[in-house]
Each structure stands twice: as C-alpha cells, then as structure tokens.
C-alpha cells in the first residue's frame, strides 16, 4: 500500500496551557514495498507520526492516506479495523503488551479480533513461529515464563499473525544484546523481502538505517528535516550534526581515511572485510588516487 502524508499537523491538547505541536506541515510519500527508516531524536515527532499510520491518531490538519484509507481532521474512518489489520505496528518493548494465558492464545489474539477464523489462524501460526525463531513447544507455555528476548518474539509473532501488508517497527531492538539485535533486524529484513511488505522502521541506529533501508526520513521538531536514500543522506555530515545525528561509523571512518591519506574512498555498501581489502590496496603506497 502506498502511504502519503500531505501537510499533516498534529497538536496535543489544543487550546490549553499544555498545547504541544508534535507534527508540523509534514509531507512525504512511501511507495508500496519499500523499506523506510525514520530517524530523529526523542521528541522529534517519530512516535506521533507512526500512530497516524494505523489511525490511532487522526491529523489535526492535512491528510494522511494509507492505500485506500484516508485520515482527515474531524472525520471518522469507517473501517478503522480493516486499516489496523493491514498495518501491523510493533511498538517499543512490545513484550509489555502480552497478557494471555498461553503463547498461542496471545499470538492468536490479533487475528481473532479481526474476525479471522480459527482454522486460518492455526494455519498461520507455524510459519510465523518459524520466522521469529521460536520452538513450537512454547505454544502452550505462559508468555510470562519466557526470557525477555523470547517474550519479544512472541509479541512480534502476534503482530505478524494479523498478516499485515505494512509493518511498522518502533525501535524493535531496544534493550537486546548485540546478537539479539542483529538476529532481530535480519529477521525483519527477511520478512520484508519474503512477504513483499512495506516496512517502516523507527530507529536511532544510523547503522541499521544504512544497512536495511532504501529510503530514510529524518525528523526534527515535528517536521521533515531531510529525506532521501541512505547513501545520499549519510554523507552530509554538517547537516546531520546540526540535528545532533552522527554519520554511520563506517562512513565517519572513510571520511577520516580520505582526509588523512588524500585518497577517494566513497561508501558504496562495502562490508567491513571488503573495506579491509580496499584499504590494503589503497594504502599500500603504490596505488594513487583513482
């Protein structure tokens, strides 16, 4: 589903002393099937933005369209449920939403609410467990007996079980150890490709944005600050630093190499081991700038 924001404003507690403009005149489009990273500091409006994607919030100005659904001020969306089924949201620390007696019941909770029949849910569960790498033995256990990492996977499985076509991820790796983080991101990337999802990732990690996203939106104070491909955005050091964002470390380092050795070594998606070989070749001394 294509997603578009047209001059969207959102104000919390309007006309009170606590009034707060969380989004101002925000416009962008996300085409179906893309992997978009939304980057910005705490308070930049990221979480307000994603709540518009499944109609948890309605804009106080402007218009949001998600496929055939439109969100506008003052207008109730009729089939908000259909929209919520299509747009799965994995909130920060999603394990906090677990509540049911068994893992299976908790995973089935979403699709059941959307009226998916029992047999269909039964069919959906095994491949999802496979995707989130949980053994089937856990299905009858209480979600509260699991480890933190497993709980998070159960919660994610619960969102995937809705079979959404848009997947919104709000810092899905927060609090995990390095291996957990990598496994989690690889899992989402595989799902994205295998199911042809439109994936929207809210993240603080420039590394993840660089590695997985094909489009990046940088938010600052409720407005869009920059937008483009990660390769284009992440070379603009000064502009990023103005909103206190760092370049991904590999790009920072390439910059330093270029400065120190007066060579041209742009970032072109090389892995660390490829970079090792490149450095060896460039710095051997007999290779000049090419």
């Amino acid at each position: 589903m294509d997603i578009s924001f047209k001059q969207v404003n959102y104000t919390y507690q309007p006309n009170t002393p606590f009034e707060h403009h969380a989004l101002r005149n925000l416009s962008f489009t996300i085409s179906s099937g893309s992997f978009v990273a939304i980057v910005g500091h705490t308070g930049s409006g990221k979480s307000t933005l994603i709540q518009h994607l499944n109609g948890l919030l309605r804009p106080t100005g402007g218009e949001v369209s998600i496929g055939p659904y439109q969100l506008m001020p003052g207008k109730k969306v009729k089939d908000i449920k259909v929209l919520r089924e299509k747009v799965g949201v994995v909130f920060q620390y999603p394990e906090h939403q677990l509540f049911d007696e068994t893992v299976k019941k908790d995973i089935a909770f979403g699709p059941k609410n959307f009226g998916v029949d029992y047999e269909e849910i039964e069919k959906r569960i095994p491949p999802i467990l496979d995707a989130v790498q949980l053994p089937e033995e856990l299905l009858e256990r209480s979600p509260f007996d699991l480890s933190g990492g497993q709980m998070r996977r159960v919660a994610i499985a619960g969102v995937l079980a809705m079979d959404p076509s848009v997947l919104v991820l709000d810092e899905p790796t927060a609090g995990l150890d390095p291996r957990g983080q990598k496994e989690m991101m690889d899992m989402f990337y595989q799902l994205h490709n295998a199911k042809g999802l439109t994936t929207i990732l809210v993240t603080h990690s420039m590394e993840d944005a660089l590695q997985y996203a094909d489009h990046v939106i940088i938010m600052d104070h409720g407005t869009k600050y920059m937008e483009g491909t990660p390769e284009d955005l992440f070379v603009q050091k000064d502009k990023l630093q103005a909103v206190q964002l760092d370049l991904p470390e590999i790009i920072q380092f390439l910059r330093k190499i270029e400065d120190k050795f007066q060579v041209s070594l742009p970032y072109e998606g090389q892995t660390i081991s490829e970079l090792g070989i490149q450095l060896k070749e460039h710095l051997k001394g007999d290779v000049t700038d090419e």
Binding site: D177, R179, G276
Partner: peptide, 23 residues
C-alpha cells in the same frame, strides 16, 4: 565473543579484517 552473544566495535572489527589480509 560473537559466539557468546557479544559484538566488538567497528574499529576492532576492521583492524581484525586488516590483520587477515596481512596488513
């Protein structure tokens, strides 16, 4: 370290890669 679920910083990784190619 990776086997026990940890990961080393970028600089260390790159240094190790360089070591592998005899830098």
């Amino acid at each position: 370290l990776q086997e026990i679920g940890l990961d080393i910083p970028f600089v260390a990784k790159l240094a190790n890669e360089l070591g592998k190619v005899d830098v």
